[in-house]
Design a protein around this nucleic acid. Structure first.
Lengths: 169, 169
DNA sequence: TTAATCGTCGATTGAGTTTGTCTACGATTA
DNA sequence: TAATCGTAGACAAACTCAATCGACGATTAA
């Protein structure tokens, strides 16, 4: 029961994309180098973010990624969904398939009564949604503002400086 | 991001332990046979439940398990905690350890500002707790009452009958 | 007292997933 | 035309999960 590191990579990387103007982008190489991550692996993460419409890519030399939506429209949950997929947290495997008493029903007794699904399963799903609701309420732009307050100014300025491309050379 | 089947096995099995009088118990063999589960694996699950003080064991012939607490005092979350351990859902691996700008700090810039921990991490932890809060509010006795309403009577009666040991022979 | 039953523990194995690398490819720019 | 960049897929190593096996100690029935 753990989120993959992809989620971490994605969330951290997106922070650096927030201020990027729509006519610019940041390359995977810079992003991975700055954070000390595997370049090829991070590129896979961004492939998923791109497919999900969270970032858009610019190919070719000086290409890279930028946000495809306003930061207010990207929630933590969106990112997780994009990167991890949408498999439910708990899935009753119908363990009682072989239940001695109810073989013929091919379903576990506590998992199906009429049309309703497993009570245990329902509880888990509801719990899951409590988490999702919260994660959907936190957006990237919220994160940006939060970091602005919490982090020393020079750190944020510094990272912005790092990703600024010297188009003039 | 998924709970292990152990959680499912545990939750389902505990249902059958609810009505067991304190001077009786149900053996792993019966429990696994009835549900069509691996006996040895289920015994591991109960080992964990036992260590966590959720069930207590009776060893020797005609031994088995019974609830160690009142069903009102056993929540879904207690069971999950017992079976899965208490590892956090998301753990910032300090990916920016090698961060170009802040190598000397040995911590990721967005992960530590003063004494506070990573903002991203905090969000994930809070999300996690939303789920836990819900799961802590659902107890085994609640599940019992719920199943009483939702399941056909003969199913519950039948399973109780199955686990009733004929001490008289 | 002996044999069968039952919980406990640890080692091991196999499957599946996660993390990560490598390579080839197409688009873009200088 | 060559270097840079995203894209895609094959592949490999590491790790986790599910499950099995065997040895052990406790208990009960014969």
């Amino acid at each position: 029961m753990k989120y993959s590191v992809m989620v971490e990579y994605a969330l951290h990387s997106l922070v650096y994309l927030i201020d990027v103007p729509s006519n610019e982008s940041i390359g995977i190489k810079d992003l991975s180098e700055f954070q000390g991550l595997s370049e090829t692996y991070l590129s896979k993460v961004f492939g998923k973010l791109s497919k999900a419409g969270i970032v858009s890519s610019v190919s070719g030399v000086k290409g890279g990624y930028k946000l495809a939506k306003a930061p207010e429209e990207i929630s933590f949950w969106d990112v997780i969904k994009a990167v991890e997929g949408v498999k439910p947290i708990f899935q009753c495997q119908n363990i009682l398939k072989n239940n001695l008493m109810y073989v013929d029903k091919e379903k576990c007794s506590s998992c199906t009564s009429g049309n309703s699904t497993c009570t245990i399963n329902l509880v888990m799903l509801e719990a899951e949604q409590q988490m999702y609701a919260f994660l959907s309420s936190k957006t990237i732009s919220w994160l940006d503002k939060e970091l602005e307050q919490v982090l020393p100014k020079e750190i944020r300025v510094g990272s912005r400086e790092y990703f600024k491309r010297n188009d003039s050379i």
